[in-house]
Amino acid sequence: MTKVFNNPVDFKEQMIKGFTAAYSRYVERIPNAAGVMVKGGPTPGKVSVLIGGGSGHYPLFCGLVGKGFAHGAVIGDIFTSPSGEQCYRCGKALDGGAGVVFSYGNYSGDVMNFGMAEMRLEMEGIDVRQVLVTDDVASSADFDSRRGVAGDFFVFKVLGASAWRGDNLDTVEAMGRHANAMTRSFGVAFGGCTIPGQPQPLFTVAQDKMELGLGIHGEPGVETSDLRSASEIAGLLVDKVLSDVPAGAGSKAVVLVNGLGATKYEEMFVMYGDIHKRLAAAGIDLYKPVVGELATSLNMEGCGLTLMWLDSDLQALLDYPTETPAWTNV
């Protein structure tokens, strides 16, 4: 991945050009902005959802733009929040007259830049709401201070579905906040990632070690531990996520085992067998589990577990038909 580039300075722009060329059946470029939107643009009279953040996380963020999912994505440089100007331009392009919801992982750069865009759009009379994703259990004891990782996928899915089925701005925002409140993640890393043009990875992990509670921008984990077997890692992920079950969670949950980029599907399936058994033994009714790469960190070696506990609202929105470059269901 990080061996394929022309000029690293121009990586983002070239990536957007290639992406929109490949997936013009779903998306189009937002004119004069570093962003993409659903083909045809916003639907008049309906709420739009704008997601975004730095690149390096595909399918976050641009791969989740399309019918039933996000209306648009604003795209920053590798692991760098898009600027306030670009968030503003994309937000403005996406307003269909019923308001726009911004949603992104909780990182200080994104909060500042989306915040500045919100201020400008509000001055122009566009109603903007913000739903921050804070699913990473490892990053803080305080829920609102946590960073967003693979839980982005479920929160964006719920927001997008709510907007596409025609909910008003208050409802779309409330559904997104509810989805975030019900989502928890924890991840481990076995090796760091390399930014295009950089001579070495951001961090390295010793052969016999692993990092617990990693970030998706190549941040090392909050703690280093001995490398364990797949079964033991499965147990650790389940224990960490279940150590913080949200208030009001029922027994049903959608489950995601997410690969960070260099940990492959077969390895994750080996681990998933144990995760499935352990969650079922903990009394969780597993709904449509997914094993895949939905929030990556370039070529980082590692994986994580995400659960979103479901009620009938969230389940209906999760099942809402979707057509995007990276995710099509039901």
Binding site: G54, S83, S108
Partner: peptide
Amino acid sequence: GMAFSDAAGGASGALVG
């Protein structure tokens, strides 16, 4: 400052800009 903010992105773009 305006040009800095837009080109840099991220927290430092917003802050220095």
